[in-house]
């Protein structure tokens, strides 16, 4: 069964339609690449899934549970919204690390705040915190940042910051991890280390949605590719089909433009 099902999502800003009739699904452990030119609605789609924007219409289901239904726009309480958000993780283009926390602090913060709400927190405070710290250190080690756990963001390179941000998102065990152009803010020589980490995650069957302009990477890492154009899904399919045998004229034009730039 698909872990994520998105049906007929619509979204407008003011009078401008940004997303139109977006439907797709994603299997557990698979990676989805979202490609398309700037302003085609990729980022807005990720933000809708993470409830940073509210779609005007459509349905979002995770593990069969309806998280959002545009036809029943009930006011959801803040705590419900929080719970729903935790199904998703989001890695931002500009990292958005918390500058006053160390790498480890960034990874642990949300987890320890959530833990405080557990009924058994007072009794087992030490164990819980120790466990969180162990998980945090472990995640940072996986990201190749074992030596950097106690560094503050301003002491890290862009690539290192982005890897901390990935560890931070993973710490909450999201069902689906979303990346919003994770390498766009990085110097070219630093993109490799971040892409390598994402590749490793794909190999370990992390369910992921990646918005990216790195076409080679998108093709290599993805199980499915969606090409978006002007707020609509123009073409979706296996990477080989979309990249090498695109059916739609728009897709061909887009890919041709990319090849020229290379």
């Amino acid at each position: 069964m698909a872990i994520l099902e998105v049906e007929h999502i619509q979204k407008s800003f003011g009078g401008t339609r940004v997303l139109e009739d977006i439907s797709f699904s994603l299997e557990k452990g698979k990676t989805l690449s979202l490609i398309g030119s700037s302003g085609s609605g990729k980022t807005t789609l990720l933000r809708c899934l993470n409830f940073l924007e509210t779609p005007d219409q459509g349905i979002i289901r995770v593990n069969g549970e309806v998280l959002f239904d545009g036809s029943q726009p009930l006011k959801q309480s803040a705590s419900e919204l929080r719970k729903k958000r935790l199904h998703f993780g989001l890695v931002f283009q500009s990292f958005n690390l918390f500058p006053q926390y160390t790498a480890l602090g960034n990874v642990m913060l949300a987890g320890s705040l959530l833990a405080k709400e557990r009924p058994d927190y007072k009794e087992h405070r030490r164990e819980i915190q120790a466990e969180l710290e162990a998980t945090g250190r472990d995640l940072l080690a996986q990201m190749g940042l074992k030596e950097k756990v106690d560094n503050y963001p301003h002491q890290l390179s862009g690539g290192q910051c982005q890897r901390v941000a990935i560890a931070r998102a993973l710490a909450l065990h999201p069902d689906i991890l979303c990346f919003d152009e994770p390498t766009s803010a990085l110097d070219p020589e630093l993109t490799g280390e971040v892409l390598r980490v994402i590749r490793e995650l794909a190999e370990r069957e992390t369910t992921m949605m990646i918005v990216t302009h790195e076409m080679v990477f998108a093709r290599d890492v993805a199980d499915t590719v969606i090409f978006m154009d002007d707020g609509k899904i123009c073409e979706q399919g296996k990477p080989l089909d979309v990249f090498d045998h695109p059916k739609e004229e728009r897709t061909k034009q887009f890919l041709a433009r990319y090849r020229e730039q290379r």
């Binding site: 993470n50 409830f51 940073l52 803040a78 705590s79 929080r82 719970k83 958000r85 935790l86 998703f88 993780g89 989001l90 931002f92 500009s94 958005n96 690390l97 918390f98 913060l109 949300a110 705040l113 959530l114 931070r168 998102a169 909450l172």
Partner: peptide, 16 residues
């Protein structure tokens, strides 16, 4: 303070 700080907190399930 950039809005990204709030958004990062929100997607990590933190309250306002």
């Amino acid at each position: 303070i950039p809005n990204g700080q709030t958004e990062a907190g929100l997607v990590l399930g933190m309250t306002h």
